[in-house]
């Protein structure tokens, strides 16, 4: 059974005919063609598929596409503007928060949600926000430094 899904993906309104049993991760990757969000564990355990739904982080592998009707979806592709990386992306690049890169889109979107809600999180708050995001390359220290890099760079800019 299919139904019409109307929503906003990365700032653009869309209308698609989707099967009721389609996962949001498959909709984003295969119907919309945004391959940034990754399917890692495929069962809610790794966070690689983390996207934002109305600014809150959500696992696209545990979400039925039809249930985000009318909502605002953001994937990692939404962050760079005019070919320039966002500050958070830039920090993952500079501070080596990315190794193989598989977990990175999910990591970045979970960190993006945190920074939008709290511009100056403590180390503990960063760790808590990213607790559901696993990195198989285990670069957790560098990932933490990348998120902290954004805060430090904001502080420098303000000083």
């Amino acid at each position: 059974m299919k139904s019409i899904l109307r929503l906003t993906v990365n700032g653009r309104e869309r209308e698609d005919l989707v099967p009721q049993n389609m996962l949001l991760i498959d909709y984003l990757r295969d119907t919309v063609g945004l391959k940034g969000s990754k399917m890692g564990c495929d069962g809610g355990e790794c966070g690689a598929c983390t996207i934002l739904v109305n600014d809150a982080p959500q696992l696209a592998c545990l979400t039925l596409a039809a249930t985000v009707e009318g909502k605002k979806i953001e994937t990692v592709e939404s962050l760079s503007q005019n070919g320039r990386l966002s500050k958070l992306q830039q920090m993952f690049h500079e501070k080596l928060g990315t190794q193989c890169g598989f977990c990175t889109p999910g990591m970045i979107m979970a960190a993006e949600a945190l920074l939008r809600a709290n511009s100056n999180p403590s180390d503990e708050e960063i760790k808590k926000a990213l607790e559901g995001n696993l990195c198989r390359c285990t670069g957790y220290v560098k990932i933490l430094e990348s998120v902290k890099g954004v805060i430090e760079s904001n502080e420098e800019a303000a000083a």
Binding site: G47, P57, Q58, T63, A110, A129, E131, G132
Partner: peptide
């Protein structure tokens, strides 16, 4: 319970 992202939903 679970992780921060799970707890949103």
């Amino acid at each position: 319970i679970a992780g921060t992202t799970h707890r949103q939903t």
